[in-house]
Amino acid sequence: MSDPHPGSLAEQLAARFGDTLSLTAVRNETIAELAAADLIAVTTALRDEPVFRFSELIDLCGIDYLSYGQTEWDTDTAGGDGFSRGVEGQAMGRFNWDERPRAASEPRRFAAVIQLLSIEHNRRLRLHVFCDDDTLPMLPSLTSVWAGVNWFEREAFDLYGIIFDGHPDLRRILTDYGFVGHPFRKDFPLIGNVEVRYDPELKRVIYQPVSIEPRVLVPRTIRNDADLLQAKAEAADHWREN
């Protein structure tokens, strides 16, 4: 029997949706980026049309692209100031709230990443949807398409502050009752802002400003080109030995 839907997933998507999706395929993984406005229409089609039949939404998560590609360790030039070139840093875990990095020129910080699974065709698809506005990130809710996305959207709202328009019950889910802020944003300090302790005088648990210092010892480093090529060559060498 011939395949009723010829072509790879990327080809089928391109044929069906045209410019609505911008597609990439790496290592058998198909990734499609689309605009928030098209999200509901596209996902409904992906779920229902027999070519796609993505019956399950496996996962939805938020992501914050602030500070993407920033490093704390200069790997191109070597200065005379030794190790200290590595300990000043703005990356995750190395600042407190007052010194947090400000989002200045980062266009489109927030995105939601959706993993779809088609049980019928045994294949996966990943969707990237960027929020248009960084100050009030907002996306349409998919709860009308897959009921199971409910908690995933609540999680993305809780941790990244992405608001899902049309969600029936957009409460915080993982953080504490009454938590302030969205902790997984890249400008939220790893140590947090408040800590709790029992106050013996007031005889109750109180919140107070966090007393620990940010302390991440390993600097964030990006090394590309030479190292990786060399690593590949070395790996190839050793493969012959094994």
């Binding site: 998560c61 992501i63 390993v218 964030r220």
Partner: peptide
């Protein structure tokens, strides 16, 4: 993003 630490890890 090419660094020695992950940029984002999400666990499903």
């Amino acid at each position: 993003d090419g660094a020695n630490k992950p940029f984002r890890v999400h666990l499903r």
